[in-house]
Nucleic acid binder design. Sequence first.
DNA 1: GCTAACCTTCACGTAAACGTCAAGGTTGTG
DNA 2: CACAACCTTGACGTTTACGTGAAGGTTAGC
Lengths: 168, 168
Amino acid sequence: MPATTPTTTTSTPGTALLKIQEVAAETGLTPRSIRYYQEVGLLEPAARSEGAYRLYDASDLERLRTIKELRDEAGFSLAQIGQLLEDEAARERNRERFRSSHDPTERRALINDARDRVERQIETLEAKAARLAEMIDAAKERRRHLDEHLAELEGGPDPHPERRGHVR
Amino acid sequence: MPATTPTTTTSTPGTALLKIQEVAAETGLTPRSIRYYQEVGLLEPAARSEGAYRLYDASDLERLRTIKELRDEAGFSLAQIGQLLEDEAARERNRERFRSSHDPTERRALINDARDRVERQIETLEAKAARLAEMIDAAKERRRHLDEHLAELEGGPDPHPERRGHVR
DNA sequence: GCTAACCTTCACGTAAACGTCAAGGTTGTG
DNA sequence: CACAACCTTGACGTTTACGTGAAGGTTAGC
């Protein structure tokens, strides 16, 4: 028995399964964080080795990178991330059910459900983006103001620049 | 001694000073959080009453609202918020020095310094915004896809919609 | 000048998100 | 098959960002 392959039915041939440390190196997370994410239900490893080693596939890596991005870049809590990913998962599940359903009414219901979920995601994200945009605008306004001052200094080293047009 | 007025020199006449609970009501923060922000150096109350009550002015309120926004909307840690506000403060200080300096070279140096700081703020914020935008685009793409499906179902309740043009 | 309602400063408790050993099993390479 | 390098599951420690009293001063109204 060569048995480098795990004992699961997730046989995606070309897909090499990685051990937790390799995943950590690949994603920039720590093994502890990855285990913790499993603990709080953010992702289950694709498989376990015979000796119970966690084994991760490509989609796991993708998911972990998503989690990390949501955490670092967007500053969401793990609970919020869980919500967002759960919505994703529900979307996938509905997709499956959708595919196997031939009743147009149910199909429409499933899609509408999915759409609502995506809509919620978008609203959550856009609210955050809007706030950020406001802050960015404020900062840019400050920068613009400073640039004005600089231009003034370049244009003519007037010892009393506050006299020409209301600097404040 | 009528002494409703504090014992500080920050005499901005029309500015009513608020006690911590009033500030809390006004900002949506808790008194504890406000004290904590002071503890970690995010803001000092404008004054103290005779009996050492914390008293806050309008600019304190503004600052607290900013902190809350950065915390809730942008998801920054208090440490990061401290950095951003510190940059702000440095900007103000430089502004003061700028006003009292009459050496054009130094003036330019001060403004350039300030500009660098603002630039850093903008970069930090825009990086975050960019990530968010990516996520929003992805979500919108999913929504668009779902809408397509819905349109297909509305247009004609075809029992085999997967036959018309590669649904996946 | 009494008292309710607020404030103060400790000080300990808590939830989230991990870090860090400890004790022991697994893997694969020589 | 020995053994270093990795993995497992606890379990306790740590930091951040507060919550929650406790013990005692302060303020404002009557």
